[in-house]
Design a protein around this nucleic acid. Structure first.
Lengths: 203, 203
DNA sequence: ATTAAATTTGACCAAATAGTTAATATTTAA
DNA sequence: TTAAATATTAACTATTTGGTCAAATTTAAT
């Protein structure tokens, strides 16, 4: 029975993750993964059977990260108005440091809708977004916040956080003065998004 | 001197556009383009020299489409409050019918930041977004709308319009009941985005 | 109709690439 | 200590793929 060398296995997976996210499935060569992991290409197959299976592991892990980062404050016991700025802040932080993760997931999701569905369902089963929707609706009934669809509210939040960063290579040229990867842009965005989201809730 | 057969040239370009947008640069094979265009692979090189040059033409054209669609109402003589809903409506319409165009442009922009910069600058020189910014600021001074950065306002608008559609393969699973490609989702989104954008302007 | 130029094709080539295999080195356990 | 099991490697293979080239076909001018 194979026991595997955990160091080697993890090294391959980590390198594969980095390169897949950077270049996508078709742009990634198994030889490059092997080289950068400091191993033989045959060993990659020994551990992961094939390029596509290795890819699936990376892809699944990536989907988990995308949703995991959103889940951080999702069901904290605070009120919606209290935790919205926290969600914005933490998710924005995560996105700004992992733009290529999101580009990768979106791009590959369109290439493989079949098992994207499957993977997303697996990941979702671990996150209790229904509880969030419930508490959101309760606050609406209590008259604390405006009557708005919680689903649309969340879509707005992630849209505003994710898009400016995955669109960086295009956006940065639109407004020459802005350096999107700079702290200043990040702080400006955080304030704008927070204000926008809170404006949606205000009656 | 070559004159080329315009029909053949256009046929190749159109097929290449469709396949490149669907599968990306690395996922696209010249043989497939040739097959679907009903020509020989050698003819593709006769017209376009190489795969990468053909790709550049498609990529440039795609960037033009992305910005062109935004420019429609940008500098119409109406007030910001009047034209914002029109911009939302028309851009959302365009995005919903061309999701893969946006996924393609974003994804390839990260792969080729060098000439993405170049292309975006070319395309931008044709669009007068500075006029928009100027008229926006004038209305702020007149006290018609709230004091908000026009650039951030535009980023919000495109984020809210684009992201939900390029994120479809992932989002659709989050909320099982929603069918993102259905009219009902589109109309719902249009209203939410319009409200959100107008709320940003209201004093 | 003839010819010259432009267009289109079939057959081919070289490089790249995912995957295999058999031999070697290392670790584990008796 | 040794032998069996596990991990790692070098060399190889089959296929894919972008690109080439000379020959064939079509088009246009004389």
């Amino acid at each position: 029975m194979k026991r595997y060398n955990k160091d080697t296995e993890e090294k391959i997976l980590l390198v594969a993750q980095r390169i897949f996210r950077e270049k996508g499935y078709n742009g990634t060569k198994t030889q490059e993964i092997a080289d950068e992991a400091g191993i033989n290409k045959a060993l990659l197959h020994y551990y992961f059977t094939s390029k596509s299976i290795l890819f699936e592991k990376v892809f699944l892990g990536s989907i988990e990260e995308v949703f995991g980062a959103l889940g951080t404050h999702l069901n904290s016991p605070e009120s919606i108005i209290e935790k919205t700025p926290k969600m914005v802040s933490s998710y924005l932080q995560f996105v700004s440091k992992n733009s290529n993760l999101f580009v990768f997931v979106i791009s590959e999701a369109w290439q493989n809708p079949e098992f994207t569905d499957k993977f997303v369902k697996v990941v979702l089963s671990k996150i209790d977004y229904k509880q969030y929707v419930t508490s959101f609706k309760r606050e609406i009934e209590q008259g604390v916040i405006k009557d708005i669809d919680p689903v649309q509210f969340l879509i707005n939040l992630v849209s505003l956080c994710i898009f400016p960063f995955i669109g960086t290579p295009i956006i940065q040229n639109v407004f020459a003065k802005i350096e999107v990867d700079k702290k200043e842009f990040f702080l400006q965005r955080k304030e704008v998004i927070t204000n926008t989201m809170l404006a949606m809730l205000k009656k």
